[in-house]
Nucleic acid binder design. Structure first.
Length: 754
DNA sequence: TCAATCCGTATC
DNA sequence: ATACGGATTGAC
């Protein structure tokens, strides 16, 4: 063949002739770099971070060039790189290291993680924006000397005397075999030292060069509560905007501007313009010459932060990575970040992987939202990726929300992060008046309200707000989450005898339960035909909206749900019926918020039920006006329940501490580390038999999963988490080497436990 | 004693 | 998927 002749004439590059490549093969036993010779002709293009094509096991496969080294440990003879797909260095060294760490943490393959981290190439986009970018690239990278990129240039990096092939600074990440990080400041490692006082652990922060360097810098990088900060005239010199409403807010902004690795869990005040706060934190970081990555849950939140950033930073200083973008626009924006043309990236889940120059701050908003969990292998959680990234880059981190997750609480209790909260007095000024209602069910006197009876407090509160000219938000459960039921005889929807909410059937229980107030209706009989039999039906938000509309005659009713999300409503009287997460903003805030979504609270099967309820309530209640402007919240639930108590006092910290304590008692995440193994029984058994479980590991299960599948849970202490992941990955490697036919799914920290 | 064939394993 | 090494087999 002609090609063979050409190949025979190829010569290896003169310097650093060996390329270490991560091949795109999803097999656990091949999760390590493979060495190839760099043809002299590709010497220039074959830089760390580029996509390559190589011949692997007789096939052409894609891969990423991780590093260039002097020689290979491989005994056999090396093949040449087949080709450098493009000289574009799409895998940033920081991201390569991060990806390896995340693969290890989640018992997954580097190749799988890289598929999540680097978007598919779009050649046209690359060449379209390339000439200009190439021309302006050196000036566009003011950090070139300090950036890791400089170090990964094979020519710059390696002295001829470099003894070990791996002496090259490169994208090369730790080997998969490297078990636990020894970094005491890591979230995981810290947890193993439960006895250590927060102060002792936080003092690790001081080891960062920035924190140690500045004489004016407070010793504690995580920013302690400092009374002077909130009151003093410093605010004038360094305007903190809305951050001065929080005790440690201005100090936190100062820390990020000075490049200190301040890490905080932020409990936003009700009514907070949180996108503006995040934009201010980003701006402070950029002012200090560092980059920022911001992750939010959905397109609407993204839109808000996008606009806030444009306002605060000016145009062209950030890009928004939206999951809904087409491949070319997605790649275009990724390239803008990758080429260090913008210092700030905001986006949904996948944006955790966005390269930015000199990362100084990572932000995640509403980390309890389940969309932050990646559904593709190895199922990493955005919060986890970001915090790992902050640890590796030794940069600042901000975990913000109206609610606080168990994980956020753990960061505080281990001293890894500090709290950013408002003073009680400030909180009181900003909060709506919040009251539960459970017992006070009456028929509203208003004849129009006969169809959909609400608890009278809820009805009166809404009515008053409407009459005062304000919009009212009604949060109802999402359709399809739970089947509703209707009378088997006359098909009339089965209604709660107390509050007229829709009755539903929970799992195995055959006692219908109200979706709104949670009461069981054990002896239900149809009010129309008195039949006692029920059949499944579906009642959605729209139907609820119609009925609520009749309860408030003369006022417009609007709905916001999954399919059609309202983003904002004017400051005019209207009833807005919304499912959780789809609540629009109201200009000036809602006059009243009614919380009828209590089903999650009742489903005891879900470990996170109470936390999730709390989160939905706080997110909706945060949209109400403060009490002194008439803002009121009514939650239709028993006032003695912990989430209701926490809501009334607006104390997400108290609730999260309580949740975490409970999970510690029960040995549940995040207090313990769990993993699940799912597949056909024989495959699960095989994998477990191959797993060298860490000391003290517990096996729970099997629990049946969907069709023919079963699921085993493994539990270890957090100090053994890395060992467990390593053991599972090794076992998966043995199976894949054997070409095991039946697949098993390994999930570390699975999003759904039961 | 050597070539043809089979099987398991690594994949650079 | 394919390529290779080592073991196995069968003919001389």
């Amino acid at each position: 063949m002609g090609t063979k002749g050409v190949r025979a004439e190829r010569e290896p590059a003169e310097r650093l002739p060996v390329a270490r490549v991560c091949v795109d093969v999803p097999l656990a036993h091949l999760d390590r770099p493979f060495d190839y010779l760099v043809p002299a002709a590709d010497d220039e293009a074959a830089q760390p971070g580029v996509r390559v094509k190589v011949r692997f096991a007789g096939q052409q496969v894609n891969g990423f060039l991780l590093s260039r080294v002097e020689s290979s440990d491989h005994g056999g003879k090396l093949a040449y790189l087949e080709k450098v797909v493009s000289p574009e260095r799409v895998l940033d060294p920081e991201i390569a290291t991060l990806a390896r760490a995340i693969a290890d943490r989640y018992a997954g393959n580097l190749a799988d993680v890289l598929r999540l981290a680097v978007p598919p190439r779009h050649a046209r986009v690359e060449t379209q924006s390339s000439p200009a970018a190439a021309d302006s690239e050196p000036p566009e990278r003011p950090d070139a000397a300090a950036s890791p990129d400089a170090a990964v240039s094979p020519h710059a990096a390696v002295s001829p005397h470099a003894a070990s092939p791996d002496a090259t600074a490169s994208l090369e990440a730790a080997s998969p075999g490297a078990v636990a990080s020894r970094d005491v400041a890591s979230p995981d490692a810290v947890v193993s030292q439960d006895v250590a006082s927060p102060g002792a652990v936080v003092s690790q922060d001081v080891a960062s060069p920035e924190a140690a360097g500045g004489p004016g810098a407070p010793a504690d990088a995580a920013v302690p509560v400092d009374p002077d900060v909130t009151v003093s005239t410093n605010d004038a010199a360094h305007p903190a905007g809305g951050w001065d409403s929080y005790l440690a807010g201005p100090a936190y902004l100062r820390a990020v501007r000075e490049g200190r690795p301040a890490r905080a869990v932020w409990s936003a005040l009700p009514g907070e313009d949180w996108p503006a706060r995040i934009a201010e934190a980003a701006a402070a970081t950029v002012l200090g010459g560092r980059g920022v990555v911001i992750v939010v849950a959905d397109a609407r939140d993204l839109d808000r932060v996008d606009r806030a950033l444009a306002e605060t930073l000016g145009e062209g200083r950030h890009v928004a990575l939206n999951a809904a973008l087409g491949p070319s626009e997605r790649y275009r924006r990724f390239l803008a970040a990758s080429r260090h043309q913008v210092p700030v990236v905001v986006g949904t889940r996948a944006a955790v992987w966005a390269p930015v120059p000199r990362l100084g701050l990572v932000v995640i908003w509403d980390d309890g939202d389940d969309v932050h969990a990646e559904p593709r292998a190895p199922y990493p959680h955005a919060r986890d990726v970001l915090l790992t990234r902050a640890r590796l880059a030794d940069c600042a981190a901000l975990v913000g929300g109206f609610a606080r997750t168990g994980e956020g609480q753990l960061l505080l209790e281990t001293g890894w992060a500090r709290e950013i909260v408002a003073d009680r007095a400030v909180l009181r000024r900003r909060s709506p008046a919040i009251a539960p209602t459970g017992d006070d069910f009456q028929l509203a006197r208003d004849p129009g309200a006969v169809v959909a009876r609400l608890p009278s407090l809820a009805w009166q509160t809404a009515k008053q707000a409407l009459q005062a000219g304000a919009p009212v938000l009604v949060q109802v459960p999402r359709r399809g989450y739970l089947p509703s039921v209707a009378c088997a005889e006359c098909r009339a929807p089965a209604r709660c005898p107390h509050c007229a909410g829709p009755l539903g059937l929970h799992g195995a229980r055959d006692v219908p339960v109200c979706h709104w107030c949670g009461r069981a209706a054990a002896d239900y009989s149809c009010p129309h035909c008195h039949d006692r039999r029920l059949r499944a039906s579906v009642i959605g938000a729209r139907r609820t909206a119609e009925e609520l509309g009749r309860a408030f005659p003369g006022f417009p009713v609007r709905t916001s749900g999954r399919e059609q999300v309202l983003s904002e409503v004017p400051a005019a009287p209207a009833v807005v019926v919304s499912t959780p997460g789809a609540e629009p903003l109201a200009e000036g805030g809602f006059g009243a918020v009614l919380l009828l979504d209590t089903w999650a609270l009742l489903s005891r099967a879900d470990l996170r039920a109470a936390e999730e309820t709390m989160r939905r309530w706080l997110n909706a209640a945060a949209l109400a006006r403060p009490a002194h402007e008439g803002g009121r919240v009514v939650v239709v639930a028993d006032g003695s329940l912990a989430p209701v108590q926490a809501l009334i006092r607006w104390d997400p910290g108290w609730f999260a501490a309580r949740e975490l304590a409970e999970r510690r008692d029960l040995g549940f995440p995040p207090a313990a580390r769990m993993a699940s193994v799912t597949g056909q029984a024989a495959a699960v058994a095989e994998l477990l038999s191959l797993t060298h479980l860490p000391d003290g590991a517990e096996l729970l299960g099997p629990v049946p999963a969907s069709d023919e599948q079963e699921r085993m849970l493994l539990r270890v202490t957090r100090s053994r988490a890395a060992e467990l992941a390593h053991a599972l990955h090794e076992a998966a490697g043995v199976r894949s080497a054997r070409k095991a036919a039946l697949p098993v799914r390994i999930q570390v920290d699975p999003a759904e436990l039961f």
